[in-house]
């Protein structure tokens, strides 16, 4: 069973000015006083959230509303300064595209490290070694360096690497889509089967349609706070109205 429990979390980013990065200047300031060279940005404020098996959560909100930060909290990257985080289950975080891919190495040689980063087991890597070349249809290109690939081929390989292992909790930033793959149907099927094997999905996207048909719950964030949380249709409709009003007011 997988579970996510966030209890009144606050997360602040310190933004360091150049002086705040210097050991010498920081030490001198300690002694003589003065500005700290650090500005705190509040990315998440007093947010609570419970998710269980079967939940598919979509995050919506403007840029800078805290969606990405929340993904990183669930991924175990960002540790809130206040509140409690309890996450049970194997988390796979697909936040950055193509992490661990070495452009100088062949597609074949690029299978292992990205998957090891994501925490793949031996069995999963063994499976991926045969499945990824077959799925991507790279043929003899699988033996050539990644940097020689066309954009479409690169997209196919990163997509395959991202969807080959199973997660209890899948943390997904919006880059992963079947759209830029030239065999959309096959990719859609793969994505769907991966999502079906996932117990909890946490997904951030600007595509409201994608969220509407993928997710069972939607969290609308603004300024690091929860604005609405509930059924996709309700929250998305309300969000769309609010966005239109904001646009009209401008």
């Amino acid at each position: 069973m997988a579970r996510i429990n966030l209890d009144h979390i606050d997360f602040n980013y310190p933004v360091y000015q150049v002086a705040g990065r210097s050991l010498k200047l920081s030490a001198m300031r300690r002694i003589s006083g003065g500005p700290s060279g650090v500005v705190q940005v509040r990315a998440i404020r007093d947010l609570s959230l419970q998710l269980e098996d079967g939940d598919r959560l979509g995050l919506i909100g403007r840029n800078g509303s805290g969606k990405s930060t929340l993904l990183r909290v669930v991924a175990g990257l960002a540790h809130p300064q206040r509140g409690r985080v309890d996450i049970q289950g194997r988390v796979v975080a697909l936040i950055d595209k193509g992490l661990g891919i070495n452009p100088e190495l062949s597609g074949e040689a690029n299978i292992e490290l990205p998957l090891r980063f994501l925490g793949a087991t031996e069995a999963e890597i063994k499976h991926a070694r045969t499945w990824v070349p077959a799925f991507t249809n790279l043929n003899e290109f699988i033996h050539l360096p990644f940097r020689t690939y066309s954009e479409g081929m690169k997209a196919r390989l990163t997509f395959a690497l991202s969807t080959v292992i199973d997660a209890d909790i899948l943390v997904l930033d919006e880059w992963l889509s079947a759209g830029d793959i030239n065999f959309v149907d096959k990719a859609e099927a793969q994505l769907t089967s991966m999502l079906n094997r996932t117990r909890i999905l946490v997904f951030a996207s600007h595509s409201l349609e994608l969220i509407r048909h993928t997710c069972t719950k939607v969290l609308w964030m603004d300024g690091g706070r929860m604005v609405r949380f509930g059924e996709p249709d309700e929250v998305i409709d309300e969000y769309t109205v609010a966005m239109r009003q904001a646009e009209a007011a401008m």
Partner: peptide, 9 residues
């Protein structure tokens, strides 16, 4: 830093 920003390693 790219890795540490995206994965809990």
């Amino acid at each position: 830093d790219g890795h540490l920003r995206a994965l809990p390693l």
